[in-house]
Write a protein that binds this DNA or RNA. Sequence first.
DNA 1: AAACAAATACTACGTAAGTAGCATTGGATC
DNA 2: GATCCAATGCTACTTACGTAGTATTTGTTT
Lengths: 232, 232
Amino acid sequence: MIGKNYISLLRENILFKDLEEEKLAGFLTAFQEEIWPKNTCNITKTPTLFKFYIIAEGRVKIYRVDPESAREFTLFLLKKNDIFDVLCLLENCEHKVFYETLDEATLLSVPIKIMREWIVKYPQINKSLLPYMGKQIRILEEYTSNVVLSDISSRLAKLILTNINKKSKKLELINDLSNDELANLIGSTRAVVNRHLQQFKKDGILKISRKKVEITNLELLLKQAEKNHFSG
Amino acid sequence: MIGKNYISLLRENILFKDLEEEKLAGFLTAFQEEIWPKNTCNITKTPTLFKFYIIAEGRVKIYRVDPESAREFTLFLLKKNDIFDVLCLLENCEHKVFYETLDEATLLSVPIKIMREWIVKYPQINKSLLPYMGKQIRILEEYTSNVVLSDISSRLAKLILTNINKKSKKLELINDLSNDELANLIGSTRAVVNRHLQQFKKDGILKISRKKVEITNLELLLKQAEKNHFSG
DNA sequence: AAACAAATACTACGTAAGTAGCATTGGATC
DNA sequence: GATCCAATGCTACTTACGTAGTATTTGTTT
């Protein structure tokens, strides 16, 4: 059982938002609060085969690693109210990915068995899963599309653009990541990302300081996102 | 209304398989049979915004095109009993992809509005959509993973390997595709794919004739799939 | 303030993959 | 069987990317 202050979290969660207030309180009794320190990896933690997680705070990356080259790339960058792992939830087989916290993260966990019972019992949850998965498919299609059709500088520009908060006009979610993590997000390597960041800086597109990116010329950034050596 | 011979098709369809026989017959009255000639593209056809399709025969590729470079790449290669477009079904917004038949194809179409009503009315359909989408997510994750972490020869080898029928040991689904279409499937170009196919031939891995690939040494092909210049 | 580690910056180099252009082949069509 | 077109095969060239190695910066710890 965990604190009632998490009800407002569930109320905004894509899976639970359509359920009545009393039900939500009931659900909370099954959840457990877990604090994962920064850089906690799922290899050393209870695997997602047995627990289903909701992120209450912090960021978690879902990533793959090529065992030979040790190169890593990030499939999803999860934030508050994101959930994992849906694939393990649906099928009892392993999902060949790793999880790692980028910050100290607060997670709500529930035994995956119970979560499965809920899906059967509450059609709303089942129904809500569809648009969630649809969104993931769209993200992955876009990701693949970019990796195949766009060069690194274009992908880097797009990555930055999609993480600009429309209201504040500031870079969010990825603004404090190292060059290494940025590279993982676009399927490249640290050195190459840095090379392009330096070029962006020279071009007056952005300012960089340690683990910090600030856009100074949005228009040029947009152009950079479209520019592509594959095209004429 | 279409022929009753399609009942057996629905009985094997991932979305309809759990429904009673009488219901299936009822469903069929809403379907329309459409014959799409080879290379029919959805741009010239009724868009997927209004109809939902089941493939009865033939292959359909879902692909994207980079408008500038005109480079194309295939996201999914659909075959008998595959369905499209699930994303349009879930959300009323456009799915930024194209469809094109690789053979003359027979499709069953139903107005997307009716399909949506069925989803609400029959929870089995709703429930069946989840594993279907889960599978798509897995495919896309693997796709992205390969494009980022593996070189072309490795991707080409993997593409061939995943399309070998386990029983007949023969190449299926993609065995009669042009180098161009093979390139689209791994995110590359005709000339490069051909270059690697020639090398595979030299290495005694396979025999090639026009629009035909035959594996002669499976073991070497497996090695080729693992070999990767990104790794040490 | 000194020491340290981590992140970033920069240079140099090798190479797979993309592109262009053309030759050759094979299967259809007339 | 002559013609035609699309698919394949091949050569030559360019380049963005990845890697390696090292220098420099920056922020934190002692």
